[in-house]
Nucleic acid binder design. Structure first.
Length: 270
DNA sequence: ACTCCTTTGAAGTTC
DNA sequence: GAACTTCAAAGGAGT
């Protein structure tokens, strides 16, 4: 249940400060093109990455959040330690903002009786809205109720990867520079800029993404990407077959022509 | 209202 | 284990 998930995450944070890497999933290998620059992975330290990472136009918090910020769990002694500032590599990022504004890191809501009922944007009801339906006390079979519960079960989203974090930060800048609004076009530009970044610059985002995954695991210990797998409607087979004759995206094109995914730009996609 | 587009990376599934 | 698929974000465009 939504509240249960959030509540357990809250309790976890309140009473069980994150262990240093115990029970973690194996650390993913950094991408080939970035291997040399990847920071050494020592003892995972849950630094407050989001204090260090932000967009100049951070995703606005839901309306009710701003009014409740004063009660946010960050101010509890335990959590302040958990999220306290450290001088990680992310400190070099150009902008800073509270982790509170980072959508996938805001703590969950629904803690009974807790004034800081802050919705966790990583937890999204199927409708996409944060509101919870009032409990239906009408006559329903257990099976129906169970099915309904399952259908209304909020989705815990995947943690963002390095490129997604980069996009989130740079999107506004690209929009301003290029006066574009279409995300598809913006993402193409961002993809090229991503490749143009130095390894050191990219390493910042890989490190940030690694920490995000760690924190996500702490918040949602039982969560797996499998939970959301196949929930979105699959694209039609025809589309995929079409892409066999059309180079499509640079990534697909590079794969098709056996080019290096990290460095090569194929002709049709240049 | 829903899906597609477009990107990369992580993680899942399939063979 | 390689290859393929899905989903994370974003918002305009199309159905």
């Amino acid at each position: 249940m939504y509240k249960d998930t959030v509540y357990s995450a809250f309790n976890l944070l309140m009473h069980y400060p994150p262990p240093s890497g115990a029970g973690q999933h194996p650390q993913p290998q950094p991408p080939l093109h970035n291997k040399t620059s990847q920071p050494a992975h020592g003892v995972p330290q849950l630094s407050p990455l989001y204090e260090h990472f932000s967009s100049p136009h951070p995703t606005p918090a839901p309306a009710d959040i701003s009014q409740k910020q004063v009660h946010r769990p960050l101010q509890t002694p335990d959590l302040s330690g958990f999220y306290s500032l450290t001088s990680g590599s992310m400190g070099q990022l150009p902008h800073t903002v509270s982790w509170f504004t980072h959508p996938s890191l805001m703590l969950g809501s629904g803690v009974p009786g807790h004034p800081a009922a802050i919705p966790h944007p990583a937890i999204v009801p199927p409708s996409g809205k944060q509101e919870l339906q009032p409990y239906d006390r009408t006559l329903k079979t257990q099976a129906e109720s169970k099915a309904e519960k399952e259908a209304k079960k909020p989705t815990i989203k995947k943690p963002l990867n390095a490129f997604m974090l980069y996009m989130k930060e740079m999107r506004a800048k690209v929009i301003a520079e290029c006066t574009l609004k279409e995300s598809a076009a913006i993402n193409q530009i961002l993809g090229r800029r991503w490749h143009a970044l130095s390894r050191e610059e990219q390493a910042k985002y890989y490190e940030l993404a690694r920490k995000e995954r760690q924190l996500h695991m702490q918040l949602y210990p039982g969560w797996s990407a499998r939970d959301n797998y196949g929930k979105k409607k699959r694209r039609s087979r025809e589309k995929h077959q079409e892409s066999n004759t059309d180079p499509g995206s640079p990534k697909k094109c590079r794969a098709r022509f056996g080019l290096n995914q990290q460095t090569d730009w194929c002709g049709p996609c240049r």
